[in-house]
Write a protein that binds this DNA or RNA. Sequence first.
DNA 1: TAAGTATTGAAAATTTATCGCAAATAGCCC
DNA 2: GGGCTATTTGCGATAAATTTTCAATACTTA
Lengths: 143, 143
Amino acid sequence: MNTLYSPSALKAELNAKGWRLTPQREVILKIFQELPQGNHLSAEDLHEQLVGLEQDISLSTVYRTLKLLARMGILRQLELAEGHKHYELNQPYPNHHHHLVCVKCNKTIEFKSSSILQVGSKQAQEYGYKLLDCQLTIHAICP
Amino acid sequence: MNTLYSPSALKAELNAKGWRLTPQREVILKIFQELPQGNHLSAEDLHEQLVGLEQDISLSTVYRTLKLLARMGILRQLELAEGHKHYELNQPYPNHHHHLVCVKCNKTIEFKSSSILQVGSKQAQEYGYKLLDCQLTIHAICP
DNA sequence: TAAGTATTGAAAATTTATCGCAAATAGCCC
DNA sequence: GGGCTATTTGCGATAAATTTTCAATACTTA
């Protein structure tokens, strides 16, 4: 899984696969890196933030970039109960976490568990897959 | 999590919350109960199966029923990599399983892990949530 | 069995995400 | 640094998935 990405590290990783570092990609990654722990953004959320920052990035590019960064393992795609995908930075071990979601009110609680990442790594390894992300999602109803 | 639902058990569970047992809901649950292990259906898939069975259930009702049964904890909603939601029966312990998904080719492998369900139950309990479902999704790239 | 409310079907509307194409630009080589 | 080429962007159009509206129908309960 990923470590912390400086712009140049991002560039290296992109170029290694024939992709390019663009200002749009850099800005989007920066936003996720500066997002407070526990926050996550949908494509629309992100687009609005960018407009607020006077960074004019089209919605298409937002979608394309989110997909790309998730496929690189830099972002993780969350499927919470909101009906659309959310994204957050895919952080390595000590910050790696999972989600407990109330399907009624959509409230989401983060929690950590070292054993889950172990199970995930082991499974991926067993089948020879390259691990990108590993997330436990608990659907439940809050009191 | 759920046990096996007979039509009358389904009726009881529905009525307890002011909902009704309809032939549509009964047929849809039956289809999932007879689905071979490892299969899962999208709303469209299910609708096609129903048409094939000469069960004329509208697509709206299919969507509504899938959502309802998932919220009751009878079905689980899977977010694999296909771009639309899939559903399967939410089975208790010995059949409870998780998914390893290749984000490139969409191939999905099921695997079991008793420890994950334990982690999930513990977390839900800790916050006083009523557990509906608990699934580990591993995103990875196949060889 | 009748009353009252939940549910259904059909079509329209929304929401979410992708695509095609021309213009812009990052990376690379000299 | 300037030019070449392939990648990326923005825009609008489009597609796909899901929800909503509303009148008609059908469960439940008393």
